[in-house]
Nucleic acid binder design. Structure first.
Length: 641
RNA sequence: CAGGGUGUAGCUCAGCUUGGUAGAGCGCGUGGUUUGGGUCCACGAGGUCGCCGGUUCGAAUCCGGCCACCCUGACCA
């Protein structure tokens, strides 16, 4: 848990906010391009595999082209957006005191041996053999290389703290790439790594972590995104504290939960649940609902199957999941010989959260292999909490929502269905006190070390907030665009990266790592900002700020267009002149599709009075008539809105 | 990885059940027409029907194998 940054830990939901000064912050001269000179293959129809708005529109508008599953070419307009996002990332990273470098994408497999990530990454890792038969891989992230480089180039504590970053193509052989740029096998990522002597204090990890938290907030704000920051699990990269930056979007793959009272927000994997008080009668207390009855449930290992077959709601069922203890080191393996098990029991409509089971049991766990568990007496698919009773090396944890014998809402004893611990059978009228095989109330009272009640399920909307009395969690979907981690000494220890401190003591270096999915951010922008006609780019990352639609591009009109474009460019605006010999309707449709924030229409009629038409992409209709001389100013004003 | 589905023109798809050597719309080219929200008309170019094998006089179509792509799910049994 990240300590000491108070407000930073709470959810920050940032409104779309960008100002004109951001557009021409560098006071550079804008670009001018003619459509006829560019590759912008717009289409009326989307590719059959495109389903989400960002995928459909970026394909139709000619920003990207699929080359193979999860691999895309960035066409000129797409590449311009990508570069603009990259530039924002660069500016903010540099401002936060980080320095840019470029690591290789292709690396030797041996590099992952010390941290064991060649195994840990498994199938996700893109592997290949070179002509000499040496194992190579394409980098999914770069902790090992950068640690290796720093190890051989930084030998004094005086060089720390240090934060380096790169913007690189990453490779992950996803099970299932999907949704265009949102989940790719090849994608662009900014990854940063920081190195410290300490966690706390000046120059420590926390200081950099907080600074990059702020930098990320600036980056996504400048990109025009509506996003939330949530507490997160650190996942396969490992480490302690971690925050995710989530674009708020219904199409997102991640579920986040937040407390409207306290501002607490977390990924569903991580989200804590507020106290769920014991029933008035106490845990497990309640009369049986009937005789214990065994029912034949062939081929129904899943809750859903049984629920359908027996016409029993999942919230009247107990789901029992078996984990095997994995010794964390040789000491543990020696202290606890043989197989140890943790049995987690939750209500049928809930999901077991492995992280919570791990924390409560204080053991490293993995889901038990079905055959192995059967051999140990757990009839996987038909397990009940009874299976944990009477076994020596087995801990049973029951979630509060499952640990009830009396249904307070209905005012009568709780009816339970659970496995019969025998293939193809379940039991009805399970009663904790009568049928468990030991007295759960007494076991709790005497603090039986093999039995406990604890919060071990994923949080859901409607659960009590862990941070505000009486408040209730709400759910929202999001797209993860940034993730920051405190790694601690995980990598430096594994790779033996130690350094002499001021007291001449060898200490492992403390690390942090910080990622931004650059290409995913581009897609997330489209998800969040489009309408039926196409994309509506936020000005700071639009491929061009202005599209100039020429109704009939004859010499005179072209000359006026060039003049206006030069003036706009002088103000720092990028201009795309649609000079194609196309019907006006086609050009208007394409202008809406590609989504430049401002359109300047130049036609003979308005021009006769010295006017052009200017409108924002969000506004319908023809736009307002503006004298040619005032066009640049009007465009800037619109972009600032 | 499991389950389902699809591969036919640059794109979106029909044709396959019931075998006879391939179609539409969009796009593309030429000519005309039109010129402020995907004009209209005519003519035209473009396909080893994913690959390999089998059945057959004959296969886009039937059978087998492979490959690619897509959807759903996914350590919760």
């Amino acid at each position: 848990m990240h300590q000491g940054s108070g407000a930073l830990c709470s959810a920050v939901r940032v409104r779309r906010l960008y100002t004109p000064t951001m557009i021409d912050a560098t006071s550079r001269t804008g670009d001018i391009a003619r459509w006829s000179n560019m590759l912008i293959p717009t289409t009326r129809e989307a590719p059959a595999d495109a389903e989400t708005p960002s995928h459909i529109f970026m394909a139709r508008a000619g920003f990207i082209r699929k080359v193979t599953a999860g691999v895309y070419a960035y066409l000129p307009l797409g590449y311009r957006v990508l570069r603009k996002v990259e530039q924002i990332v660069r500016e903010e990273m540099d401002a936060a005191g980080c320095c840019e470098l470029l690591l290789p994408a292709l690396m030797p497999l041996e590099l992952l041996k010390p941290t064991g990530r060649d195994e840990a990454y498994g199938e996700l890792l893109f592997r290949l053999d070179d002509r000499h038969g040496r194992g190579q891989f394409l980098g999914p992230t770069h902790e090992e290389v950068i640690t290796d480089i720093l190890q051989t180039s930084v030998s004094s504590y005086k060089a720390l703290p240090l934060t380096v970053y790169q913007i690189q193509t990453k490779y992950r052989d996803e099970f299932r790439p999907r949704a265009g740029l949102l989940r790719c096998r090849e994608f662009i990522m900014k990854d940063a790594y920081s190195f410290h002597l300490d966690v706390e204090g000046p120059g420590g990890l926390n200081e950099t972590y907080d600074r990059l938290y702020q930098a990320y907030t600036s980056i996504f704000t400048r990109c025009g995104l509506d996003f939330s920051v949530v507490e997160a699990e650190s996942g396969p990269i490992g480490g302690s504290a971690s925050h995710e930056f989530m674009v708020n979007c219904e199409n997102g793959e991640d579920t986040i939960l937040f407390c409207p009272e306290s501002g607490y927000a977390a990924n569903v994997e991580k989200c804590e649940i507020g106290t769920r008080p014991a029933p008035a009668e106490g845990w497990f207390v309640g009369e049986p609902t009937g005789e214990l009855e065994e029912v034949h449930t062939p081929d129904c290992p899943a809750i859903e199957d049984v629920s359908r077959l027996l016409k029993v709601k999942p919230d009247c069922m107990l789901k029992t999941v078996v984990f095997k203890v994995v010794p964390r080191n040789e000491e543990e393996a020696k202290a606890y010989p043989g197989d140890w098990w943790v049995v987690a029991c939750v209500r049928g409509d809930h999901e077991v959260n492995e992280g919570k089971v791990r924390d409560l049991s204080e053991c490293q766990l993995e889901l038990a292999d079905a055959d192995e568990a059967r051999a140990a007496g757990f009839e996987i698919g038909f397990v009940s909490p009874r299976a944990a009773i009477g076994k020596d090396q087995t801990l049973l944890i029951v979630d509060p929502d499952a640990a009830v014998g009396f249904d307070e809402a209905k005012g009568k004893p709780k009816f339970w269905v659970t496995g019969a611990d025998r293939k193809d059978y379940h039991i009805k009228h399970f009663n904790w006190q009568r049928d468990l095989g030991k007295d759960p109330v007494a076991a709790l009272a005497e603090r039986d070390c093999k039995f406990m009640v604890g919060s071990i399920r994923n949080a859901e909307a409607g659960d009590p907030s862990p941070r505000a009395e009486g408040a209730v969690l709400q759910a929202r979907r999001g797209i993860e665009v940034g993730h920051i981690f405190k790694l601690g000494d995980k990598y430096s220890k594994a790779m033996g990266f130690e350094i002499l401190d001021a007291d001449q003591k060898r200490v492992p270096v403390i690390m942090g790592c910080y990622g931004i999915g650059v290409s995913r951010t581009v897609a997330a922008c489209v998800e969040q900002s489009c309408d039926d006609d196409g994309i509506i780019w936020p000005a700071p990352i639009a491929p061009f700020h202005v599209i100039m639609t020429l109704i009939k591009p004859d010499e005179r009109i072209l000359s006026v267009a060039d003049d206006v474009a030069r003036e706009l460019a002088r103000c720092g605006l990028d201009v795309l002149i649609d000079d194609r010999e196309e019907r006006p309707g086609v050009k208007f449709k394409d202008a809406d599709l590609v989504g430049m924030p401002v359109r300047v229409t130049i036609g003979a009629k308005a021009l006769a009075d010295g006017n052009v038409e200017i409108k924002h992409r969000r506004d319908k209709g023809k736009g307002e008539l503006v004298p040619v001389a005032e066009a640049a100013g009007r465009c800037q004003a619109l972009l600032a809105m």
